[in-house]
């Protein structure tokens, strides 16, 4: 579904942050991107989403080169849902406004149908739907941002550190929700994560980046068993 091949990318006229990265993700799988802080995980996700055009290489969705398609056209035209790492809710809008905006291009009846279904699925949000998003806790914001992306009915979900700043309990709740989405919908999910072992617990495959290149890739369960992973994340080396 997503094919990234030999992508180089960077900001403005700065140096390349991504130095020739290739990645593949198919429908019905969670692919997690791991690696130390600043290695380019978010940049890679922004490149797939369309915030950043690749300087070289290609980003393709279902075989079509979409490197030059801007973000706002990816949402409708290619079914891409994106949840940024920070600032991922419209703080001054109410919870329900946040969610409905995700489906603003759909006919009213369809939008309301999906809205009601999602509210049943995520009762914590339903209880706070008239509050401003700024009044939500960190975990509730993650869920809200996820639901805002889901209501559009995406085929591809790009998540940037969905567990950032969450308590272990909330983190498991969010990860369960993400795994549930894959199992129920067969969506293609690409998820950047800091909590490597928990992410590998729900992911099907993983890529480990260092300095803008892929250092390791493989099935999540193989990486979990890989001693060099343990060294990278549990040993003394700096892992962000």
């Amino acid at each position: 579904m997503i094919d990234v091949s030999n992508v180089r990318a960077g900001y403005g006229d700065g140096a390349d942050i991504l130095n020739g990265i290739s990645l593949h993700a198919a429908g019905g799988e969670i692919v997690t991107i791991l690696g130390p802080n600043g290695c380019g995980k978010s940049t890679l996700l922004k490149c797939i989403a369309g915030f950043l055009a690749p300087r070289a290489g290609t980003v393709a969705i279902d075989g079509e080169d979409v490197g030059a398609v801007p973000v706002h056209r990816k949402v409708r035209g290619y079914g891409v849902g994106f949840v940024p790492q920070t600032d991922n809710v419209f703080a001054t809008l109410s919870v329900s406004e946040n969610i409905r905006l995700g489906a603003r291009h759909l006919p009213r009846a369809e939008r309301e149908g999906r809205f009601d279904a999602l509210m049943r699925q995520y009762p914590t949000l339903a209880a706070k739907q008239n509050r401003k998003a700024s009044a939500l806790s960190g975990g509730e914001r993650q869920i809200l941002s996820l639901v805002r992306a889901l209501i559009a009915g995406p085929k591809i979900l790009l998540l940037d550190e969905p567990s950032a700043g969450l308590s272990p309990l909330m983190m498991h709740e969010v990860f369960d929700a993400i795994a549930g989405i894959r199992d129920d919908t067969g969506m293609c999910i690409v998820m950047v994560e800091q909590n490597a072992f928990e992410a590998l617990g729900i992911a099907d495959r993983a890529y480990v980046l260092t300095l803008g290149t892929v250092a390791m890739e493989g099935r999540a369960r193989d990486l979990l068993a890989d001693p060099s992973m343990r060294e990278l994340y549990l040993g003394g080396s700096v892992a962000g």
């Binding site: 915030f51 706002h72 949402v75 409708r76 940024p84 419209f90 703080a91 995700g102 603003r104 805002r148």
Partner: peptide, 9 residues
């Protein structure tokens, strides 16, 4: 939130 707006289509 301009960035999120773009990500929302």
């Amino acid at each position: 939130n301009r960035v999120l707006a773009a990500a929302t289509g």
